[in-house]
Design a protein around this nucleic acid. Structure first.
Lengths: 249, 249
DNA sequence: CGCAAGATTGAAGGACATCAAAGGGCGTGG
DNA sequence: CCACGCCCTTTGATGTCCTTCAATCTTGCG
């Protein structure tokens, strides 16, 4: 196991002051919240600069904090019994993680790992629960967030139940391109290192199948598939595959 | 299409008075809510006796009401594009349905259909949204409910991604037996008519596979599989299959 | 350079979907 | 009461999708 550099902590406002304010102000959790509360949140926030591949918390841990992704991406992964792993979701800036566990005071259902160097804000569990009681807007936002996440999951479950592997891979890549894509010369590049293994865990298959699918798509100029790097070149045709439409030349 | 008997409506309290009060009092949504609010909910509730196989609402409809299952069971089914169907969940007494859609003011993501003759309470959307604003306990309960549903979905997604069909069928039956089971002579009988087709839609496969699996299990005395009726005889061994443990004789 | 992690490829076999066909239950209408 | 039809179910045959295993290749890095 490599020894990761310790996350470096700073008091809120010390260096990233204005940016931190922006992050908080734009987060869905704080939408429509009075300025005074935002101030308090800003003061109470613990800001961490977290290197890539750092575990923020493990599946099964008791939730001690609420984490808001400021910059970067975080994958939520689950492992069951004998090493069957799956990736539930990739969190992006503005997303809060550990929220369901925290609100319900239950252990985290998944392990959170940064995919690239990231910036997180976090608040202690007690502080958040107090805020939740005191501020109805936050409570309403929390309900909205958890609700939308539930709907996403329903959608994902349906897809997993009805679509074969190729379609599922197409959907996963499209979603990642939409949410974590950045314009590149050849198309939309997914904004973090993404291994075949990880794609496999997102769609419920193995590395080999993903490798073959990506190679085929690369030959057809649908994507560029390098080591730990995926670029979506032809969204439209990928969308056709994702929707199960008849494949066009 | 057969013409179903119209659901018969009654004002709350007319006939089922005390029972209705119980239903409301025991529903998780109303846990810890002041008695006065319970009274108001009781008065505002529209009580419906709904025959089996009745559609409560369709996927895509705008949510006009919140429904609480009083008695009976309701399946939540999704259909996409070209008829790919899946069953997301079976709701049981105490469950509220349409809640996520209602809280988020988005169309229902699934179609709700009664599996047996059922009793539902419902409240108009506006009334519920008002209640949500006025009563913090209800809001907290809603968050808890949606959160726990999200966790279930995460669990389901992981299972769908990592387990093969036989394990998924085993899990589905065990869950149904736990939540909708009633003691029978031979074991735990699932408390509503359940077709192979429906099992298939729950686990993401087709009727044929389910039929074969159930026959094998019936031969091994794990279950009784009749027409529209399933009895779980040996929970323990079924649990082994569900967990992917080595099959014992 | 040599190692480690990621990626690829082929072969083999099993799991699963699909198609076709036919066998019961159950209710309806004659 | 019987016959018919519908719905649910079963079974077999067939082919495809996908997992598994073994081996090799590439890339980045100490």
């Amino acid at each position: 196991m490599p020894c990761p550099p310790a996350p470096s902590e700073r008091r809120a406002g010390e260096i990233h002051g204005p940016q931190i304010g922006d992050i908080i102000g734009r987060a869905p959790l704080f939408r429509g919240v009075p300025g005074a509360v935002l101030e308090r949140a800003h003061e109470a926030a613990r800001v961490l600069v977290v290197p890539a591949k750092t575990v923020l918390f493990h599946q099964g841990d008791a939730p001690s904090q609420l984490i808001l992704v400021g910059k970067g991406f975080v994958k939520m992964g689950q492992v069951s019994g004998r090493g069957e792993a799956s990736i539930i979701r990739v969190m992006e800036p503005g997303d809060i993680i550990g929220c369901v566990a925290l609100f319900r005071r239950k252990p985290y259902p998944a392990t959170a790992t940064t995919l690239i160097d990231s910036l997180t804000l976090s608040w202690p569990a007690g502080w958040v629960l107090d805020l939740l009681e005191q501020c109805p807007e936050v409570q309403a936002n929390a309900l909205e967030i958890v609700g939308s996440r539930a709907e996403e999951l329903v959608h994902g479950l349906h897809g997993m139940a009805t679509a074969r592997v190729e379609r599922r891979v197409a959907r996963a890549l499209l979603r990642l391109a939409e949410r974590a894509g950045q314009a590149a010369a050849e198309g939309t590049e997914i904004g973090f290192p993404l291994s075949r293994q990880e794609i496999a865990e997102m769609v419920g298959t193995d590395v080999f199948g993903v490798s073959r699918i990506l190679r085929r798509w690369a030959d057809q100029r649908l994507v560029i598939a390098d080591r730990l790097r995926v670029v979506v070149r032809d969204r439209k045709r990928l969308r056709c595959i994702a929707d199960g439409a008849f494949e066009q030349d």
